[in-house]
Design a protein around this nucleic acid. Structure first.
Length: 286
DNA sequence: TGTAGCATGAAAACTCAT
DNA sequence: ATGAGTTTTCATGCTACA
C-alpha cells in the first residue's frame, strides 16, 4: 500500500510539474528546490517581538535605487518561490502572516456623530466585486510596516511605479505612513479597480497619477521616458497575479507559467528596465 | 447583461504520533 | 526521519434571477 501511494504521488507530481513547468525549462534545471515556510510566519522581524531579528546584507548591485517590493501568496506550488527569488537577484522572500500585524478579531463599541454614508473608498462596487477586490489587495498593515523605512529616507516624497495596482493597497499604505507621493505610474487592467483607485487618489492626493492598462504595453521605451521625466523611480511595487498559484484554485493551478501568474515575468522585465534606465541617467549626470 | 449564491478538490503545510 | 490524519488556501464555473 505504501509503495502504491508513493508511486501515485510521484506520478501526480510529475504530471503537475510538467504542466506547471510548461515549455519554459528552468534556468538551472532544478525547480524543486526547497523553500520552507517559517513557523511562526513572522518575517525578518516584528515590532516588540522577542526573537533575534535577521540581519541582511545585500550585494551592492541589488540595493537599488530603485527600491522594489514584490508580493504573492506564501503557499504557492513547490518551486515557485525559488524561481521568483532566482529572477529577483536571489533575494530571500520575507514570509509574513498578517495576523501578527493586524487584529481581525477585536470587538469594540463606538459612539460618534459622524456621517455614516460613503465611508470607505471601495464604495460603488457590488458586494461580490468589492469582496474580490479587497481579497486581492495588499494587507495594508503589513505592507505599511515594511514600507515604513522609506519615511525618513524620502522626506520630500517618492516617485512610485505601481504594477498590478488593484485598488491601491500599496498607495494606501504609503498615505497612512504620511509619505507623500510626488508621482505614481499605475498599471492596472481591471476597470472597477481603476475606478476605485482613481476615486481615492482624487480625494486624498495632490501628486501626479498616470494610469496604464496593461503591463505588456509598458514597453522599455516608455519606461525610459518616464524615468527621464520623473528623474527615476524611488519604489517599484506590486504583487503579480496569484490565480494560478493559489491553493483554492481547482481548475487552473498551473504554477508560475499559468496564464495570469506568468505576468510575474513582466514585473521582472519592468524592474530591470527601470534599473538600467536609471543607471544611464546617473551616468549621464556624471 | 450582470451579479448573488452556491458547489466544486487538491496541493502542500501542519499536527501529532511513532 | 517518517507517516497518517487534519487544516488551510489573493479561485472558478454554473445557475437562478433581476
Amino acid at each position: 500500500k505504501k509503495a502504491r501511494l508513493m508511486e501515485e504521488s510521484k506520478k501526480k507530481r510529475n504530471r503537475y510539474g510538467g504542466r506547471a513547468q510548461g515549455n519554459q525549462p528552468s534556468l538551472d534545471g532544478s525547480h524543486d528546490e526547497p523553500m520552507p515556510l517559517p513557523n511562526p510566519m513572522v518575517g525578518f522581524n516584528l515590532p516588540g517581538y522577542l526573537q533575534p531579528s535577521v540581519t541582511r546584507i545585500l550585494p551592492k548591485q541589488d540595493t537599488g535605487p530603485p527600491f522594489f517590493y514584490y508580493e504573492n501568496v506564501a503557499q504557492a506550488p513547490k518551486g515557485v518561490w525559488a524561481t521568483i527569488s532566482r529572477f529577483l537577484y536571489d533575494i530571500q522572500p520575507e514570509f509574513v502572516d498578517s495576523k501578527h500585524l493586524c487584529a481581525t478579531a477585536r470587538k469594540r463599541g463606538y459612539i460618534h456623530n459622524l456621517p455614516i454614508e460613503n465611508r470607505d473608498h471601495t464604495r460603488g462596487l457590488g458586494i461580490t466585486e468589492r469582496y474580490k477586490s479587497l481579497g486581492n489587495t495588499f494587507q495594508v498593515d503589513t505592507v505599511a510596516y515594511h514600507l515604513s523605512v522609506l519615511k525618513v529616507m524620502f522626506p520630500n516624497g517618492v516617485n512610485v511605479l505601481s504594477l498590478f495596482t488593484g485598488i491601491g493597497g500599496g498607495e494606501v499604505a504609503l498615505h497612512r505612513l504620511g509619505i507623500h507621493m510626488k508621482a505614481v505610474v499605475s498599471v492596472e487592467i481591471g476597470k472597477a479597480n481603476k475606478r476605485i483607485f482613481r476615486g481615492w487618489w482624487d480625494q486624498t492626493q495632490t501628486g501626479t497619477l498616470i494610469e496604464i492598462d496593461d503591463v505588456k504595453s509598458l514597453t522599455d521605451d516608455r519606461i525610459v521616458s518616464f524615468v527621464s521625466r520623473f528623474g527615476g523611480f524611488d519604489l517599484v511595487i506590486g504583487g503579480s497575479p496569484c490565480n494560478n498559484l493559489a491553493g483554492c484554485n481547482r481548475y487552473n493551478r498551473d504554477g508560475l507559467e499559468g496564464e495570469q501568474s506568468a505576468l510575474f515575468y513582466h514585473y521582472f522585465r519592468i524592474l530591470n528596465a527601470v534599473k538600467s534606465a536609471m543607471a544611464r541617467i546617473t551616468f549621464q549626470a556624471m
